[in-house]
């Protein structure tokens, strides 16, 4: 069964259509990379899944997206959906709280009160993103003091802390140095053992390195989705070939 499924999905900003008739499925326990030129609609596609796209002025959509079998348009309580679907953005954002409170931001809202439960969640999530050893001595310090790469891992830990089933990442490494990028790629590979991960990336090498499948979007249309190796080496569409050939020179 697929974890996220787009069904005849269209999205608009005002009159302008930015996603046309998207039909695609994302499976559990896998990493799917989404690639495509700037402005083709990748971010919109991701933000449609957790319904944060509708925070933007003029956004509307038709068609449907199913997450874990349920239509996102029928959810009664948005927080249930957003809890299931974690999201990490391009700019690393540390909430203006301590490192600890960043991770516990979601759990506290969802009613975890017990001190030892909170501590356990925090340690588990920080370990998952390989940040624990770096910050365990300064958990109460402002998260703003972390480096960009650390902030991005903190953002992932914060998303993981509410136990999502799907993790969306929008160019998570584009502002990071190679070492931090490597760390995050490793951790995504590990997380994929339990999560459906969808990652937008401009870095085609990264897509090849970590994703099981890759989807190519052009001008708001899904051109092709295939196992990563196939998409890069023998794509069906000449448009895909044109785009990924940049990779091979």
């Amino acid at each position: 069964m697929s974890t996220v499924e787009f069904i005849d999905f269209h999205a608009f900003y005002g009159q302008k259509a930015v996603l046309h008739n998207i039909n695609v499925e994302f499976g559990p326990k896998s990493i799917t990379a989404i690639i495509g030129p700037s402005g083709c609609g990748k971010t919109t596609l991701l933000r449609s899944i957790n319904r944060t796209a509708e925070m933007e002025r003029g956004f509307n959509s038709h068609g449907d997206i199913r997450v874990l079998g349920g239509s996102i348009k029928e959810v009664r309580n948005l927080s249930v959906l957003r809890r299931q679907v974690g999201m990490v953005y391009q700019t690393p954002v540390a909430l203006p709280l301590s490192i600890m409170e960043n991770v516990l931001f979601g759990p506290r809202y969802y009613g975890v009160k017990n001190r030892s439960d909170l501590d356990a969640i925090m340690e588990k999530c920080l370990r998952q993103v390989a940040l624990w050893d770096e910050v365990k001595d300064r958990l109460k310090r402002p998260a703003a003091q972390l480096s960009g790469g650390q902030k991005q891992r903190l953002a992932i830990a914060r998303a993981l802390a509410v136990e999502p089933r799907v993790l969306l990442l929008d160019e998570p490494c584009s502002s990071l140095d190679p070492a931090s990028t490597g760390l995050i790629e490793d951790l995504l590979t590990q997380l994929a053992e339990g999560l459906c991960i969808i990652i937008v990336t401009h870095n085609l090498f990264q897509a090849r390195r970590i994703s099981h499948e890759t989807a190519f979007i052009l001008d708001g249309r899904l051109i092709e989705k295939a196992p990563t190796q196939k998409l890069f080496e023998s794509p069906d569409s000449p448009k895909t070939r044109g785009f990924v050939s940049g990779l091979f020179g």
Binding site: N50, T52, M55, L78, S79, V80, L81, R82, R83, G86, M87, Y89, V93, L95, F105, G106, Y109, A155, R158, A159, V162
Partner: peptide
């Protein structure tokens, strides 16, 4: 945006 994405 971040807080919203966590569903709070």
């Amino acid at each position: 945006l971040v807080a919203n994405s966590l569903g709070v």
